[in-house]
């Protein structure tokens, strides 16, 4: 089973890395902050799978922190930093 967990975790890491193209491309600031969304869910899933795959329960806490931080990053971005539609 642990081969499956690590395999799917690798696959999820790949979808994250490919998704980063969208941050680089933009074009609007809104498109860039979608990365927080991507990490919040995909990163959490990858960490939970790793936790099971290498049987290390503390990794679930890392997943929990990741979930919280992604939400914070999105909120901070729209509240503070977003200047408008320009590049």
């Amino acid at each position: 089973m642990s081969g499956l967990y690590l395999g799917v975790a690798s696959f999820l890491l790949l979808t994250i890395v490919v998704g980063l193209i969208r941050i680089v491309r933009g074009p609007t600031p809104a498109d860039r902050i979608l990365a927080a969304q991507l990490f919040g869910t995909t990163g959490v899933a990858a960490l939970l799978l790793l936790a099971q795959g290498v049987s290390s329960p503390p990794l679930r806490d890392v997943a929990l922190v990741l979930a919280l931080l992604a939400a914070f990053a999105a909120a901070a971005f729209v509240r503070r930093a977003w200047t408008g539609g320009e590049e």
Partner: peptide
């Protein structure tokens, strides 16, 4: 968190 963040970004 995901639903709230999506709403914030869309708004």
């Amino acid at each position: 968190a995901g639903a709230t963040a999506a709403h914030l970004v869309a708004r």
